[in-house]
Simulated scan of single mutants.
Amino acid sequence: MADDTGHTTPTRRELTGRIGVGLVMGLCGVLFVSTARISGGESIRDESGSVAEVLRERGRTISDLTDAAASKRTRIEELTQGTSSSEDRSQLVADAVGLSAVSGPGVRITLSDAPTSALGSIPGVTPDDLVVHQQDMEAFINALWAGGAEAMMLQDQRVINGSAFRCAGNTLLLEGRVYSPPFVITAIGDPDAMIASLDSAPSVKVYREWVEYVGLGERSEPLDEVTLPAFEGSLTVDVARTG
């Protein structure tokens, strides 16, 4: 539409469109500023990593700290050499708590998940039935201790008094490191006594029933000679409570 001066007058629909575009652009600006403040100038998507990635990153950090602790322990041993009586007492304590490597006969237990094909071939079976759980590993570890195990290792880490582990799905978290199956338990002691203890443990018998039912894995093998490394984690108690 044109006025008396020859200029075109915007129609009502055109004015509405321009106002709408202006509002949309204004809202986009607000969202852009808010996003920049929340993300600190970085992509928000980058901060939403999976739990598995967080655990892997923590595992890498713990590995670096463990290496640093091992280096410092070596340095301390170098500085304390030359005092025989103190050295003997330190060695006795180290042997008792697992701070020194140990060798001898033993057994190795390997536990693994069942094949996923069991889901379609066995009625009533769920994915949770096909994985090795924390209580399964605890059952074998406790039976080995009861059978006279003198030292033990889970995966590639020495297990000592106070060691703790937990499972998330079908992964194992031990001393800040993440492991996937199969899970390997190695114990030093009388192989016959430890295997007999496994055979008589009720919780181990339950696991073996599921071995037969869904195909969970278990392999036990006696070892003539095996060496377990010294414990390299922290002995510090983070939290202590009484009462």
Rank of each mutant, 00 (worst) to 15 (best):
L119G: 07
M152P: 00
E87W: 10
T116C: 03
E78F: 05
G98C: 01
L79R: 11
A151R: 11
D88P: 03
V93G: 05
A143E: 00
V125E: 01
V107S: 01
D113M: 10
T110I: 12
M137R: 06
M152I: 06
V97R: 09
I122A: 07
V131E: 02
Q134I: 08
A149F: 02
V102Q: 15
P127R: 14
V132Y: 02
S100K: 09
P127C: 01
A143L: 00
G104C: 03
I122P: 12
M137F: 03
N142H: 10
A139R: 09
E87S: 15
S103P: 01
S117P: 03
G106Y: 02
S90C: 04
V125K: 00
A139H: 08
Q135E: 13
W145S: 10
D95I: 04
A146C: 05
D113S: 15
A143T: 01
S85N: 10
P115R: 09
M152W: 00
P105F: 01
D88G: 11
S100V: 05
S100C: 02
S90H: 11
S85K: 11
S100I: 02
D113T: 12
T80R: 14
L111K: 13
P105I: 00
I109T: 07
Q81W: 08
V131F: 01
G120Y: 02
T116Y: 10
N142K: 11
N142P: 03
T126P: 05
G104T: 06
V107L: 02
S121F: 01
F140K: 04
E138G: 09
G98A: 04
F140M: 00
A94T: 03
A118I: 03
D128P: 02
V93E: 12
L99H: 06
E87P: 08
A143S: 08
G124V: 01
T83Q: 15
L92Q: 12
R108C: 03
S90R: 15
S117V: 08
I109E: 11
E78N: 14
S100H: 04
D95K: 12
N142G: 13
V97F: 10
R108M: 14
Q134L: 13
V131K: 10
R89C: 06
S84W: 14
I122R: 10
Q135I: 07
G120A: 04
S90T: 07
I141Q: 14
L144E: 08
L144M: 15
N142S: 14
Q91R: 14
I141H: 05
N142F: 08
S86L: 15
T83A: 15
L111D: 11
G124L: 06
V131L: 02
P115L: 00
L119E: 09
E150Y: 04
N142V: 06
R108F: 03
A96K: 10
D129P: 06
M137N: 05
A118S: 12
W145R: 15
G104Y: 04
